[in-house]
């Protein structure tokens, strides 16, 4: 049904809500896009690591409460990602990128089944920590405290990540690697270690997105498969391999989804794909895509 009631508070409310939806996609997409840019790996395990992040809340919540999950989940799953890269993915680098894609796709299916075996098929509804439950009055409109926290927390984290990539030697090397991997290798940098660390960072970010999303969406087995599609759309819109591309792409998708519900809710499922098609028509490499990547 088409309905238009675009008062200023509603517009601002939907905009902020779009940011909240988008920042989680940004966290997911950054890991995905950097792994893709540096390692040429189309990583389908990204979604299940996000799911495992959410399940870490299910398991840990009764022992530790919510806050420690924000640290424990990403660290454990970051290490898990590093192990995955070092043992299973590394032997396939010399082969066609299709092979690593098939490997990660298979792993994703297996891990999702493993999740069902461990935690069962039913969904676990989770709640935001007490300090962040309820609403905050922003004068113009009221908003969910927890979602505002997600926006601020993610913004802080992204700033830290940006500093890491811009100001630290390792970060710079990773970023340089996404532009010109051969050159990084030629300079004698231990590329295997760099790959493992990158995979670890990407996995930790995905797990963090899972932890953050658990109180909003609940925790259920196919959650990783559900989100991975949106993440690839964000990466394609933002441009493969680009940090800022992932940020802009994620926020754009969040805001567009939020507004499409407001204006024409029946379109909200397909609108991101229309957006993707439009971006690809105008800028085939996405908004900030790196030249030469998978081309």
């Amino acid at each position: 049904m088409i309905s238009l009631n675009l008062s200023f508070p509603t517009i601002m409310n939907q905009l902020l809500n779009g940011f909240a939806l988008g920042t989680l996609l940004v966290l997911m997409a950054i890991g995905l896009t950097i792994i893709l840019g540096l390692m040429r790996v189309i990583n389908f395990t990204h979604g299940v690591i996000y799911a495992l992040g959410a399940y870490s809340v299910v398991t840990l919540f009764n022992y530790t409460g919510f806050w420690p999950c924000l640290i424990i989940g990403p660290i454990v799953l970051g290490l898990f990602g590093m192990g995955l890269e070092a043992t299973l993915i590394r032997p396939l680098y010399k082969r066609d990128p299709l092979h690593t894609m098939l490997l990660t796709f298979g792993l994703a299916l297996m891990i999702e089944d493993l999740i069902r075996m461990i935690w069962g098929d039913a969904a676990y509804p989770m709640s935001a920590p007490d300090a962040l439950s309820g609403i905050i009055d922003l004068k113009l409109f009221i908003f969910s405290k927890y979602r505002l926290f997600i926006i601020l927390f993610s913004a802080g984290l992204l700033t830290a990540l940006w500093f890491f990539f811009q100001k630290t030697a390792m970060g710079k090397t990773i970023l340089a690697g996404t532009f010109d991997r051969e050159m990084v290798v030629a300079l004698g940098i231990p590329i295997n270690l760099l790959f493992t660390i990158t995979f670890g960072i990407g996995s930790a970010l995905a797990a963090l997105a899972g932890v953050l999303n658990a109180p909003i969406q609940g925790v259920y087995p196919p959650m990783g498969t559900t989100i991975i599609m949106s993440c690839f759309v964000v990466v394609i819109i933002g441009g493969m391999g680009s940090f800022w591309g992932a940020v802009i792409g994620g926020l754009l998708v969040g805001v567009v989804v939020s507004f499409s519900v407001e204006v024409f809710s029946a379109m909200s499922d397909v609108i991101v794909f229309i957006l993707m098609a439009v971006v690809l028509l105008v800028r085939p490499r996405g908004i900030a895509g790196i030249e030469g990547l998978l081309e």
Binding site: T10, L21, V257, S258, V261, E262
Partner: peptide, 13 residues
């Protein structure tokens, strides 16, 4: 899983 935009829209009406 997420009804936030629908709920904000409903509140506006």
């Amino acid at each position: 899983k997420d009804f936030s935009a629908n709920l904000i829209k409903a509140r506006g009406l």
